[in-house]
């Protein structure tokens, strides 16, 4: 018997996810607005590792009680396919997006043995006027800037993580699937340890590996494009007008499973069977990623 959530059938398939490396950063500022501005800049152009290098997004906003320097802040999570790529992207983005943003400070938000440089690299901007401070077992760099000082932790940790958890919402109309999508991302948003890196948390350009064009590593997944119905083999019928995919990166498989459960539940409850034809998930036959999230187990 087909599993149903709020009357919406859920396909008996699985989402295929991959090992990634991740870090969490905390950006604080004089006001939440500045912290948010820096975080948005730093996580900009970070939707997919295919061309952005990393996948990053705001994890949550932090109150003054939750940040190291007792100012309002934002936590962001960043994921990459390798530690080397993370080490390349994080200092570069921190330098151009956080160091430059008025009143901000940057801290590590995660513990681990393997380290990614932050202040250890950005300190050279201080041109000899930078000051090192060891406080509470961590090293910080104070870099003089035009509004005072940019305080930056020397480095942050990188940990093993999982990227590419996903589910597909197959809608009877664009309106319905867009509404379901919003409900899903809003349900996932408060959860710790996960992000949905695509714009608004969802993507319409689900991809397959490779292309007919040489050199292209990914291309449109025609078997999920409703407009190609009748031209290519598809697993759904003509009642599907639009499909959107929620992609989830998480610090642990459990966090991704929780996010998938919350997202699917919220999407189905938001529009019901009148709006959604079904829920599915993207995979590559289980050949590429070692993390398989079976929808029926995730929703159990």
């Amino acid at each position: 018997m087909t599993l149903q959530i709020a009357g919406v059938p859920v396909e008996d398939t699985f989402a295929e996810a991959f090992d990634m490396k991740a870090t969490r950063l905390i950006i604080t500022a004089h006001s939440l607005q500045w912290a948010r501005d820096a975080a948005i800049a730093m996580t900009g152009f970070a939707t997919s590792v295919i061309a952005c290098g990393i996948e990053a997004a705001i994890e949550c906003e932090l109150s003054t009680e939750e940040t190291p320097d007792k100012r309002p802040g934002v936590a962001i999570l960043a994921f990459a396919v390798s530690g080397k790529e993370l080490e390349k992207q994080i200092p570069r983005r921190a330098g151009q997006c956080v160091l430059t943003c008025p009143t901000t400070a940057l801290f590590s938000g995660i513990d681990g043995e393997k380290r990614i440089p932050l202040g250890n690299m950005l300190r050279y901007f201080g041109d000899g006027y930078q000051i090192s401070k060891r406080i509470g077992g961590s090293r910080f760099w104070r870099i003089p800037v035009m509004d005072g000082e940019f305080l930056c932790e020397a480095d942050t940790a990188r940990v093993d993580a999982v990227g590419g958890g996903n589910f597909l919402l197959m809608g009877r109309s664009l309106d319905a699937v867009a509404k379901a999508c919003r409900a899903a991302t809003e349900a996932i948003s408060p959860l710790a340890g996960v992000i949905t890196p695509f714009p608004g948390g969802a993507t319409r350009s689900g991809s397959k590996v490779g292309s007919k064009y040489a050199g292209l590593v990914a291309s449109t997944n025609e078997s999920f494009c409703p407009t190609l119905g009748g031209l290519v083999t598809q697993s759904f019928g003509g009642e599907v007008a639009a499909i959107l995919e929620i992609v989830i990166d998480g610090l642990t498989p459990e966090a991704i499973a929780s996010a998938m459960r919350a997202g699917i539940q919220a999407a189905c409850e938001a529009v019901g069977p009148a709006g959604l034809v079904g829920v599915s998930a993207g995979n590559y036959g289980g050949k590429l990623g070692r993390h398989h999230f079976l929808l029926r187990e995730v929703l159990r």
Partner: peptide, 13 residues
Amino acid sequence: DVDLSFTRLIASE
């Protein structure tokens, strides 16, 4: 007159 973030870190410690 200055308002420095690192003094707040020391204060927390």
